[in-house]
Amino acid sequence: MLTIKRFASIPCGTDLTALYRATVGDYPKFFKMDTACKLGFLLAEQLADEPRFTPREDRAVLMFSTCGSLCNDRHYEETVREFPSPSLFVYTLPNIITGEIAIRNKYEGETSAYVMERFDPETFVALVEQAFQDSVTASALCGWVDCRADDDYTAFAFLVERGGNGKEFNVDNLYGTVNQ
């Protein structure tokens, strides 16, 4: 059985730079990230457990959205006519958010990015459960970070583990946790 160990969310309208300064402060790569990656990074900070920064292969990072990297894609497209920006281009991938979280936390397990038409709890829970078919995966940081624009997003994430003492990771408890 999978259980919810931790939950974190970032309300739309949050000053992400202020949140970074208050909770992290010593990771300047943060300022290179697009908004989706900043959200994923900050969610992962809230969900991180001890010991930190120890390489581990047993933690997966699974991120879901509708928009993928589209918000940053528009920023890159604006540069194309004059001087295509390599630093923006590398963020035009829906899975870079998983890479940023893996790098920061030394999570060497599976990282995957999924795009769905809308937030659909049944599919979200099913895909996370299926990721645990990987026998090495013992826990997963899984989140919905849908960045429609730099000031219009939905961002929440769970730390889910095999066994554990938390609530079962299922559709009902997912709804209950998110709505709290």
Binding site: G68, L93, P94, N95, I96, T111, S112, A113, Y114, V115, M116, E117, D120, E122, T123, L127
Partner: peptide, 9 residues
């Protein structure tokens, strides 16, 4: 069924 996209670079 819900159509899923895997976009993992």
């Amino acid at each position: 069924n819900p159509a899923v996209v895997v976009s993992n670079a």
